[in-house]
Design a protein around this nucleic acid. Structure first.
Lengths: 207, 207, 207, 207
DNA sequence: CATGAATGAGTCTTCATTCAT
DNA sequence: GATGAATGAAGACTCATTCAT
């Protein structure tokens, strides 16, 4: 009896969030299980009731983070109608993701990349594939660009390549901002990027 | 005496190079002193004759890496005359840096960022400051853009911001390429970036 | 009230049996409380309602096992009349104990010895004393031998020593059988042992 | 330079001996690496310079022990000429092995059996096979018995089975002695066993 | 100077035991 | 009474660093 209404899923998430918080602050490789436990407000052993190893927490953090980012982006672009507006929405969602209170979560991204690059992280590959993630992102942005081309607002560009470039810029700025948020004006950067990009891809509507 | 000093310096460099090689392949945090020693062809204890700690090797690797990158870039841009050519040269040097035989050195960049972001790496801060590094890079690119504006080829853009964006794009593409070199065509990317950027920043020369 | 007590006793026995089953299969030291609980079909906490510690389960298992063995032996020898028949009966009961369905229970014996040997297992000594167990066994066998001597069928042997030897042989064969049942023919072994032993202890009935 | 004349093999043996000593006293499963290190007079980490895991130490201990036993037995039987003398020599060597100063090494045997029985100890099987060990021993004893039969001193017995029985008796007595050395007179036991066995297997030389 | 054997602080992980429900 | 979630003490193992040769 006593079904013990403890929502395992919820508890797991709690621990995951705590893990992400400390991982972001110190770097995944530098976090101790003890620290995660303390941050989550549970005993060390409890961690292992929900995750089988440190590595698994790590993988789950990344998945969680990526899903989180995707959700944010999807929400922002929901209302936008024209391709230009959609791109603007993207810029804003990314700008906010950086500034967000969960801000240091973004630092996790670096660790995600670092691990993703090392080919021998089998454990990580079991859970997800960084390549696929980027492919999905590129596809998402490409769709917008294609729409713009079809509508005649954008010129005949290689959509996949431009999409890659746009995402790359996001990532790169994110890094600069993490390294030196004081000298990186996200708002201005977003505006300049939008302006320059538009000039670069807009269809010539001369005379 | 002098030769002795040179010997020491040479040996130190050898170890450093070996350290960078293995670090790039496995990720800085995952490299053991033993591995560095083996890669350098020296005994484990010898490492400590030239570096006081692992952390110091780590810091020295980063400095070495950044200087290496800067040198490459400087060489490429040396011959270029017009601002456009200089930007093209930059694109090429960056493209080559990626494809280079030292290719996995680029993977180090990720680790460099990761460490740079963590505020608590006092040891690293003693040696250099990631902020400064980016400031220098931005300054370098800004100078080219300013030149173009002065010459009337580029429109009145916020040079620092555009410089940041350009560097960001480089970094971002580098990541994509590291994660998935098969689906990232550096040549095409460089071309599209140049074309789009030029359209985005060129001065309107309409009558 | 009475039924309640019986219930408790029954449940305790159930857990004990489950514990013995898994202990036999994996070795006492390698069994986890979780496994016992699962095998017994109860919750982990429930175990502690019936036993105060793992060590106690362990001790109780041994006692249970030894009583079980003694019961089997007693049953077999009940009908035998002559000393020779009694010895034969012993051989058979031991042979069956090995082959029995509870077969892997026999593996427990090894663990029983292992623990019995370590002088520092205070907990175990509280419950019973391995020395006493063997003394009882030897006494039991001695009685049969003495009977044979009194009847003039066995020669004047040192009954205690021969009893010890006989028990030793049982134990030793058990080990061989556990280690390599394919190459150990229990039936033949029992027969050869009986034959040789009889020749060895029988009274000379030369003409 | 400085070839560092540290005999790795010798050091390994030292650690092994220390490991066997403490293992015998407390039971293999109950020994901590720290204890082995302390007993060997080295640091914890040093253990891992010579053995890759606790399990490996365990396996090596067993191998060492078996070789030790075999050597003792071989030495004793070297001088014996007649089959009877050889059996007597065997009895003595076994008697001595028990009484030996390395006495508690014998306790290890129990752990060896316990592990040998559990089929899933892959690590152990890599190093050696308990079955083979017993086969070798049986073969050794069988040879003596066969010799006796050929010479007409022993009757037509099933040599393999008798050999197994003899070894079994050794093992069994060893256990009794370990459990209760005070009440187990090895000398008397050896004598009685020899006498009884001889009567049991000797060829009838009646006129 | 160069070396690599030795070291032990630091970590992950396990599991017997507790206790709130 | 029964349960299983939570716990933390305990223990195997790693690896940067030291130091005798």
């Amino acid at each position: 009896m006593a079904p013990k209404i403890i929502d395992r899923e919820a508890r797991r998430k709690e621990i995951l969030m705590a893990a992400m918080k400390v991982s972001a602050a110190k770097g995944i490789k530098n976090v101790k299980i003890d620290e995660i436990a303390e941050a989550a407000g549970v005993g060390k052993g409890t961690i292992y009731e929900y995750f089988s190893s440190k590595e698994e927490i790590f993988g789950a953090s990344i998945v969680e983070f990526l899903q989180h980012m995707e959700k944010i982006m999807a929400q922002k672009m929901f209302r936008a109608v024209t391709p230009q507006d959609k791109i603007r929405a993207m810029l804003h969602s990314w700008e906010e993701a950086c500034k967000n209170e969960d801000n240091d979560l973004v630092a996790l991204m670096i660790d995600v990349w670092a691990e993703g690059i090392r080919r021998d992280n089998k454990e990580l590959l079991k859970i997800f594939n960084m390549k696929k993630v980027y492919e999905r992102y590129r596809e998402m942005v490409s769709a917008i660009l294609k729409e713009g081309i079809n509508q005649g607002v954008f010129r005949q560009i290689d959509v996949i390549t431009v999409a890659g470039l746009l995402l790359a810029t996001f990532d790169g700025i994110m890094i600069q901002w993490l390294l030196d948020s004081e000298n990186t004006d996200l708002k201005k950067t977003a505006d300049v990027l939008y302006e320059t990009l538009m000039l670069g891809i807009i269809a010539k509507t001369d005379n």
